Computed example of a mutant assay.
Amino acid sequence: MSKENKLNYRLERGHGIILPDAEVGLDVSGNVARHIFVSHAHADHLPRDRHMHVYASPATARLMRVRGFQGDVTELAFRQPVEFDRCRVTLWPAGHILGSAMIEVETDAGRVLYTGDYKTPPSPVTEGFACPEATDFFITEATFPLPIYRWRPHEELFAEMRSFASEALGEGYTPVFLGYNLGKAQEIMHGLAPLGVPMQIHGAGYELCRVYEEAGIALGNWEKYDRATVQDGRILITPSSSLDAPMLRNIRRKRVAYVSGWATHESRRVQLTIDKLFPLSDHIDFFELLELTEKLNPRKVYITHTPNPRVVQHYLAERGIASQPLEMEGYEDD
């Protein structure tokens, strides 16, 4: 096996990566490789061509179809390799959203592990997290690339979210949780489910919730947003884009919480004019990223989806790990 310390790759218009030696495309937009894999169903990882053939996990395939994908999807179970002429590919559960996968590509030139987006410890509304013991080239997101991002345990945050909702309801207010429709909304619902309080979900997230429940993930007592009843002792879960929309303006008495890794910044409270911040992220935090990279011991790390890779590169260099940034698009909220 070759011991080159440089990965042979090219970027596909900033949206996805092509591995020419393996004839593999990772989260690419069109038919630009022989074998195309989708890591998960967030918009910035989905093909813009909705009629192509791709490989994905079963849950990702279902979520893709709900989001309008009309092509053919070959469903691959986690940890079950598929063999091609030039490579072997394995999906590993990424812990980010339901169906999310890290994609391992093995060729004569070495092993590549592409994370897409991932989280460890995993989100409780996913299939969990697992990865190979080692890799040669590690392509990792670094959405939260600074030491200020160290996540608290899920149950600790869920308990605080339940208290926020209960107090608001007890005082005659409608609790509103801001979180994007795929992944974060279902994580919020799962955390609030023990309250037994009816929850309403933004219409764009409603069908996505069905996929989660079909996968055996409990979301509690939920229904689609209804303007006529949302103020009748319900909890509302909706994207932050709803802040200036009639959906929220029509709720006279409300208390609004912002749920995101970006809630680490107290400034978000003033920027968004909200009542409470919950720093609940479905991305890996800074310290887990470093720990996992050390465990994998790659020849080189390629850093994607980050506002600033230099701090991560500095800490990796201190550990003797070479790295470089890759400029890729990333626009789904956290």
Rank of each mutant, 00 (worst) to 15 (best):
G220E: 08
R210P: 00
G216I: 14
H202P: 01
G205V: 07
L192S: 01
E223F: 04
E207G: 02
G203N: 09
R210M: 08
A215I: 05
E213P: 02
I217W: 12
G203R: 15
H190M: 04
G203W: 10
P194N: 04
V197N: 09
A204F: 04
M189N: 01
I201C: 06
G203S: 06
I188V: 03
A218K: 15
P194Q: 10
Q200C: 11
R210Y: 03
E223G: 08
I217P: 15
Y212R: 10
I217A: 15
V211Y: 02
G191Y: 13
Y212M: 14
L195V: 02
I188P: 00
G203M: 05
V197W: 11
H190F: 15
A215D: 11
G216M: 15
L208N: 07
I201E: 01
A218E: 15
L195T: 06
I201Y: 01
G220T: 05
C209I: 06
M199H: 02
Y206G: 00
L195C: 12
N221K: 04
P198V: 08
M199V: 03
M199P: 00
I201V: 11
Y212F: 10
H190A: 15
E207R: 06
A218V: 13
G203L: 02
H202D: 05
G205S: 08
G191V: 14
G205E: 13
P198D: 08
G191N: 04
L195E: 04
A215G: 15
M189Y: 05
M189W: 07
G216R: 13
E214K: 14
